[in-house]
Design a protein around this nucleic acid. Structure first.
Lengths: 204, 204
DNA sequence: GGGTTAATGTAACGCCGTTACATTCCTCAC
DNA sequence: GTGAGGAATGTAACGGCGTTACATTAACCC
């Protein structure tokens, strides 16, 4: 009921309302009926404006991606700039957790990375990495960023079903510190940073 | 209709049929009604034997994980054994793509790794890595394996929506080989191997 | 005015997970 | 044998989902 009866319902308002719906709740909250109710109209209007649910999600992804198209690079040397670039991109995805789920549903998890690819290519050129080698580096860094966020968001989607059972390592009982560390929640941020540095060591 | 009318329907047959249903089709094919039809019984029998859909998926994950609990390590030195371990685990997940989706739905994406954790810990101890350092290495390798398979399976779930647009890199038109490489399908296996070596360089 | 098109509304289809309730089957004490 | 009682299955429905056939209104142009 967020609009009075005779407001204009356009494709833009449908998409915007759908995004708000998802960001205020989660992806499951995006149903055609609920969206229609939120718009104060009937479901058929939504189908008229956007086609179907799949097309709607596509429009939402495009909208959200357009908002994060610009890339700002900071840092002294190329390695610092690449590192900052990856961390920045991770942060953006992290700030839009529902974008991940949406893009996931539309198989656009990687396609959203073109601006980052271009910026990375510039920096890699600066250190003499070109052609297939540069492509391998870009792919590796990209996968690292995406997978880090995807896995973390997946893991935190539910309660703590992901917690490991401390009593299940009969072979390593002589290393209590290791067992304690493995029983603690995963520090995804730290794991991401370590992996990033490892990749940079490798590629540069 | 895979069983005649008066066969015994047990929790085991329900889970087995559900697994077959998912592996022959996909996760969406697992509906209570279809599963009941496949068993030649009524939906209520399934609820009687397994509770509800969520519990059923939990049982399926447990069943599948039990089948891959044993770990065989091969290789001359610890590094080779760790590498083989990671590749072996990746291959197993790869061979059970639906297990990924199932575990994903149950937030058990990481919890399925305990046998691999123990084996990794043994090898890391062999090279003097203990406590928090060993835990960081285990976490890093584990995330690398999981995310590699998850991302690849996600990307290949749909057709080629993930293909990148070759005309969208105005900044790097002077590197046609890079553009060609970025436009080609992602070689996830190669990206995995590179990332794995980078992590091993880092940790060992 | 009338006619055409854009947009909205009504009501239904077939699917989903789940459940209240009735029914059958099987076992075991008597 | 024959009931009692629990285990297992069947019937039918609820509410919700995406989607669509069809009727209805609104807006514009001639």
């Amino acid at each position: 009921m967020s609009r009075s009866s005779r407001d204009s319902v356009t494709q833009a308002t449908v998409v915007a309302t759908a995004i708000r719906l998802v960001e205020d709740n989660d992806l499951d909250a995006l149903t055609m009926r609920r969206l229609a109710a939120e718009l104060g109209t009937a479901v058929t209007s939504i189908y008229w404006h956007v086609g179907n649910r799949d097309a709607l999600v596509g429009l939402m992804v495009d909208r959200l991606l357009a908002d994060m198209r610009d890339v700002t690079v900071g840092g002294r040397d190329p390695r610092a700039r690449i590192s900052s670039l990856c961390k920045q991109w991770r942060q953006r995805l992290w700030d839009h957790p529902h974008l991940i789920a949406l893009a996931h549903e539309r198989n656009k998890t990687l396609a959203m990375f073109q601006p980052m690819q271009a910026a990375l290519a510039r920096e890699l050129h600066a250190v003499g990495l070109r052609g297939k080698d540069a492509a391998a580096a870009i792919r590796g860094l990209q996968l690292h960023v995406v997978s880090s966020v995807v896995i973390e968001r997946t893991a935190q989607r539910g309660p703590t079903t992901d917690a490991t059972d401390p009593t299940a390592w009969p072979a390593i009982t002589d290393d209590p510190e290791l067992i304690a560390a493995l029983s603690a929640p995963v520090d995804y941020r730290a794991a991401f940073d370590v992996g990033l540095e490892a990749l940079l060591d490798r590629f540069l």
